[in-house]
C-alpha cells in the first residue's frame, strides 16, 4: 500500500545541492569515492538490516557477524567497509563479495546491483528459499523474485518490499519498516 509523504521539497533541494556538489567534486575524487546515491543506498542497506530478523539468528554464534554480500559488481566500492564499525544487534557487519557463479550461502543480506539485475539463477532458485534478504536497486527487482528494491522516485530513495517472498524465506520485517515502504507486495 503506497503511503503519501510530505516535505519532500526540502529533501529534494538538499539532495540536488549534494548531487551538484558531488558532480563538481567527482572528477577530483579518489577511486573509493562514490556517488551520493550509493552512499544513501549503503545507509539503506545498513538500516534495513536493523528492521529485519533472520530465522537462524538465534542459532548463530554470539560473535558471528551479519554478513553483507555484494553480488557481482560492487557499486559501493570500499564505502561499505565503514559499516563494519556499526554493529547491528551486537553483531558486526561483515562484507563479502559474491561472484556471479558463487553460491551466496552464509550471507544474510545479498545486494544485487542493477547492473547484475538479470541473475536468474540466483533469484529463481526454487523453494525452499534460503534466508537471505535480497536487495537491489533494480526497479523491477521484485518482479524478478527479489525481496527489497531501492527505487528512485523524484531523486528520493524509496523501498519496495515483497513481503510474501520474505516470509517464504523465513525473514521477519518490522512494522516500522513496512510503514516507510513505498510499495509492498
Amino acid at each position: 500500500m503506497p503511503i503519501e509523504t510530505t516535505g519532500r521539497d526540502v529533501c529534494f533541494a538538499r539532495l540536488l545541492f549534494m548531487l551538484l556538489l558531488g558532480v563538481l567534486l567527482g572528477n577530483f575524487a579518489r577511486a573509493d569515492e562514490i556517488s551520493r546515491e550509493y552512499r544513501i543506498k549503503a545507509a539503506y542497506l545498513y538500516n534495513l538490516s536493523k528492521f529485519i530478523t533472520w530465522p537462524d539468528e538465534d542459532q548463530m554464534a554470539k560473535d558471528a557477524p551479519i554478513t553483507l554480500c555484494i553480488y557481482g559488481y560492487n557499486p559501493f566500492d570500499t564505502y561499505l567497509d565503514k559499516l563494519r564499525e556499526h554493529p547491528v544487534r551486537g553483531r558486526n557487519i561483515a562484507i563479502r563479495a559474491v561472484a556471479e557463479n558463487e553460491s551466496p550461502e552464509g550471507c544474510q543480506l545479498l545486494f544485487v546491483s542493477q547492473h547484475n539485475a538479470n541473475a536468474p539463477r540466483l533469484l529463481s532458485a526454487a523453494a525452499p528459499y534460503p534466508p537471505i534478504l535480497t536487495v537491489s536497486d533494480d526497479q523491477d527487482f521484485l518482479i524478478r523474485g527479489g525481496m527489497v528494491a531501492l527505487i528512485n522516485i523524484n531523486n528520493n530513495v524509496q523501498l519496495d518490499i515483497n513481503l510474501t517472498r520474505a516470509k517464504q524465506a523465513g525473514l521477519t520485517f518490522s512494522a516500522n519498516l513496512l510503514e516507510v515502504a513505498h510499495r509492498i507486495q
Binding site: 503519501e4 509523504t5 510530505t6 538500516n47 528492521f51 523501498l159 516507510v180
Partner: peptide, 17 residues
C-alpha cells in the same frame, strides 16, 4: 518515538508528521 524510528532513519517526514 518507537513508531517513528523507521521514519527518522529513512527520513520519511510525512510518516513522522
Amino acid at each position: 518515538a518507537n513508531r517513528s524510528s523507521a521514519a527518522v532513519v529513512f527520513e520519511d517526514a510525512s510518516l513522522a508528521q
